[in-house]
Amino acid sequence: MNSKYKLPLVLFLVGMIFSILGALFKMMHWMGAHYLLIFGMLTEAFALIVLIFAILRKDKLK
């Protein structure tokens, strides 16, 4: 795997873990669910932005 794609993949997986935990907290009516969901979704969005920039930068180098 190319090292350019490791950071977005790790960020996306971390965001996914927080989103799943937030959904679990929401179903169990535990406190802090909305914070976990917001942090997870923002992390996933940031990972996608980093991935898009990595792909576009790769295309410009050719």
Results as ranks from 00 to 15, higher is better:
32 G>C: 01
40 G>T: 03
15 G>T: 03
44 E>Y: 00
39 F>H: 03
56 L>A: 07
10 V>W: 09
40 G>S: 02
62 K>F: 11
5 Y>R: 13
13 L>A: 14
60 K>N: 12
8 P>G: 03
41 M>N: 11
26 K>W: 11
17 I>P: 05
57 R>C: 10
51 L>S: 08
26 K>F: 14
29 H>P: 02
31 M>D: 10
9 L>S: 06
45 A>W: 05
54 A>G: 05
59 D>E: 15
50 V>Q: 06
21 L>E: 10
27 M>F: 09
52 I>F: 03
26 K>V: 07
3 S>M: 12
35 Y>D: 02
48 L>R: 03
7 L>A: 08
40 G>E: 01
31 M>P: 11
34 H>I: 09
56 L>G: 07
58 K>A: 13
37 L>C: 00
23 A>R: 05
20 I>G: 01
39 F>L: 06
19 S>Y: 13
34 H>L: 08
31 M>A: 12
48 L>I: 08
14 V>D: 07
30 W>I: 13
61 L>R: 11
58 K>N: 15
10 V>M: 09
6 K>I: 11
44 E>L: 02
17 I>L: 13
14 V>W: 06
49 I>V: 06
18 F>A: 01
13 L>S: 12
45 A>G: 02
24 L>C: 11
19 S>G: 09
15 G>V: 01
46 F>R: 03
20 I>N: 01
1 M>A: 12
42 L>N: 05
47 A>W: 03
28 M>L: 14
59 D>M: 14
23 A>M: 10
25 F>Q: 08
31 M>V: 11
50 V>Y: 07
59 D>Y: 14
6 K>M: 14
2 N>I: 04
49 I>A: 06
2 N>G: 11
39 F>E: 06
40 G>H: 00
28 M>H: 14
35 Y>G: 02
